[in-house]
C-alpha cells in the first residue's frame, strides 16, 4: 500500500470517527450510571468509549417514569396520522393526476407551496383554529392537522401521473368506477409511493415537538419529543435517562425504515417509473 493510500485511509478513519463518536458515546452513556458519564472525558481516557461500568438503570428508570405510555401515545398519534394520511393524500393526488377541474393548477400550486412553508409560520393561526374547534388537549389536535400533507399529495400526484392512462381507461371500459380503479389498479402499482408517503407522515409525527407542546398544554397526553424534554429539569439532568430515551426514540423509526428503505428510496426517486 502506498503512503498516499495510507494517508487517505487515515483521513477517512478520522472523519468516520468524528461522525460516529458522538452517537456511540450517547448510546454508551445510556448504559452507564449518571455519575459515571463524564468521568472518563475530562481528562479523556479510552474508557470513555466503552460501556464501563455497565448498568441498565437508565432504561429501568425511564420506564418507571412512564416512558412506555409516552411511546404508546406517540405510536397511536403517528399510526393514526399515517393511516388517515395515506387515504386522504392518495385521494388528493389521484384527483390532481386524473381529473380535469377548474382551478386545478392553482390549487396544485397551493399544495406545493404548503410543504415549503416552515411549520412555525402557521403554528399560531393553526393554534387559534384548533382552539376554536375545542380540540386543545385532545388527540384530534395532534392528528387532524397533520393528515393532509402537501408533500405526500405531491408524491402521489407525481406517481399517478406517470401511470399510463390506458390502465384507467381499460378499467373504466370494464365497468369500474374511479374509486374502484384507484383501489384495484393504482394503489397496488404505487406500493413504493404508499410506503414512502406513509413513512414520511410517520416520521413527521414522531419528530413533532413544537406543535404537541402548544396543542397539549395540560401535558396529560405526552408524545415522545415532549416527553424526552422532561428528562431535563431546571437543576439536574438525568443524562443517562435522556440518552436512553433518545436511543429508543431513534430505534423505533429505524426498525420501520430498515426493512422498507428499498421502497422508500424507490418511491422518492420514482418519477421515472414504468407502468
Amino acid at each position: 500500500m502506498s503512503l498516499r493510500k495510507a494517508l487517505i485511509y487515515m483521513a477517512m478513519v478520522v472523519v468516520a470517527f468524528l461522525f460516529v463518536a458522538p452517537l456511540w458515546w450517547a448510546i454508551l452513556s445510556s448504559f452507564r450510571p449518571n455519575d459515571a458519564i463524564f468521568r472518563d472525558l475530562f481528562p479523556f481516557t479510552p474508557n470513555a468509549l466503552l460501556p464501563e461500568p455497565f448498568s441498565l438503570d437508565a432504561y429501568v428508570a425511564i420506564f418507571q417514569r412512564g416512558f412506555g405510555s409516552i411511546i404508546a401515545n406517540t405510536l397511536l398519534v403517528a399510526g393514526l396520522t399515517t393511516a388517515l394520511g395515506l387515504v386522504v393524500n392518495a385521494l388528493a393526488g389521484y384527483a390532481f393526476a386524473l381529473f380535469e377541474f377548474p382551478g386545478k393548477s392553482a390549487v396544485l400550486g397551493v399544495v406545493v407551496v404548503s410543504f415549503m412553508l416552515p411549520f412555525e409560520a402557521i403554528a399560531m393561526p393553526l393554534y387559534s383554529v384548533v382552539s376554536q374547534l375545542g380540540w386543545i388537549d385532545h388527540v384530534a389536535a395532534l392528528v387532524v392537522p397533520s393528515v393532509a400533507n402537501g408533500l405526500a399529495v405531491f408524491l402521489f400526484y407525481q406517481f399517478f401521473r406517470e401511470v399510463p392512462k390506458d390502465y384507467y381507461e381499460a378499467a373504466r371500459l370494464e365497468g369500474a368506477g374511479w374509486l374502484r380503479i384507484l383501489w384495484s389498479v393504482y394503489v397496488p402499482l404505487s406500493l413504493p409511493t404508499c410506503i414512502s408517503a406513509g413513512l414520511m407522515l410517520f416520521i413527521f409525527q414522531w419528530e413533532a415537538f413544537l406543535w404537541p407542546l402548544l396543542a397539549m398544554p395540560a401535558q396529560q397526553f405526552k408524545v415522545i419529543q415532549v416527553g424526552m424534554a422532561a428528562f431535563q429539569d431546571q437543576y439536574t439532568t438525568a443524562w443517562n435517562q435522556l440518552f436512553g430515551a433518545a436511543v429508543i426514540t431513534a430505534l423505533i423509526p429505524m426498525l420501520l425504515l430498515i426493512p422498507l428503505q428499498r421502497y422508500y428510496v424507490q418511491g422518492l426517486a420514482g418519477s421515472g417509473i414504468k407502468g
Binding site: P164, D166, Y167, E169, A170, A171, R172, L173, E174, G175, A176, S184, V185, P188, L189, G275
Partner: peptide, 18 residues
C-alpha cells in the same frame, strides 16, 4: 363506456401488471 356493449384492445394492451 362500460354500458355500451363494447370492449377495447389497446395498443399498449393495458394489462394490469400486478
Amino acid at each position: 363506456p362500460a354500458r355500451r356493449g363494447v370492449a377495447m384492445v389497446f395498443q399498449s394492451y393495458a394489462l394490469f401488471p400486478h
